[in-house]
Amino acid sequence: MCVVSVEKARGLQTACTTPVAEGMIVETESEAACETRQFVLEMLLTDHPNDCMTCEVNGDCKLQDLVYDYGVEWPEPNGRRHVYPIDPDPNPFVFIDLNKCILCSRCVRACEEIQNRDVWSFAFRGFETKLVAGTDQPMLDARCESCGQCVAYCPVGALYDKMSVGLGRPNQVEKVRTTCSYCGVGCNFDLNVRNGEIVRVTSAEDAPVNGMALCVKGRYGYDYVHHRDRLTRPLVRAKWLPDVEERVTEGEWTLVEVAEKRAEPTVSGNGAIAGDAFIETDWGTALDVVAGKFAKEKQAQGGDAFSVFASAKCTNEENYLFSKFTRQVLGTNSIDHCARL
């Protein structure tokens, strides 16, 4: 696709390798160059499934764009096509459909030159040329570290994020740029949001630290935010609450069984709620319990009664507020976090 016409040169030249020379006249959209591109595209289509309607990358596919831009018609299906199994690789991250692979080698180069992991390569030759991991092994056996760089660079739907299959195509999602919540490298990426759910993480080319690169946690470790274990209401031990039985009976609060390892039952034989049972309450109640207890302790013991564990996972602004709260309101400097751990 990179061929261009250069005046006085014989045939078409590859734009990516031909050095520029003084006085050189290059025509990028010459008739010959366009015809060759059309031919290349049509050749690729003769061995490509015509399934854009159901393809994950519909609307975000370089092949589709080029076919459109160069006005290529879909060729009659006539001749040999590759039939590869779809999603044959047991790894949980990268979805493979080699039927869509155009052998552009971007994944090979991304893995070799950027990720330096050399998982992908081409095997066999001619029409039989095929993208393989390692010695035609499952990706994880071929030293793949699941960074998803190959997916990020795939121009078509041959490599895709397995966790995101069927959850939303590019025009159906909203992209929100953010910074990763795992290690301290500070990678930026785009959260792909659809109907209030994170359906995919995609690389952001202009990310200042990481560019297109991400690691397995950053790219594929986002689904914890939707985990059913997420806490959704404050929990308070029954012993700190007034009128527990009544308000639980009324359905205002709920007795919860979050503490699986608890030794004693939360409800005794006569239906009384044990003092250390967790009750799901409302914010007002929970905050009042905490503020009340803290105020009481401060009055009795002063600031030394408190210690605060701040968090390396919270934002700068939040940490500032924790510090302010500890020092200004609780009256102690005993705030620390797991910087050392």
Binding site: A123, V132, G134, T135, D136, A142
Partner: peptide
């Protein structure tokens, strides 16, 4: 296969490169 992997290891190249050449 074992031999291909051994060659990759000893030459410090990826098994994929060895496989790619061997099948070419």
């Amino acid at each position: 296969g074992d031999v291909l992997e051994l060659i990759a290891e000893r030459l410090g190249v990826s098994p994929g490169q060895v496989y790619g050449v061997a099948t070419f």
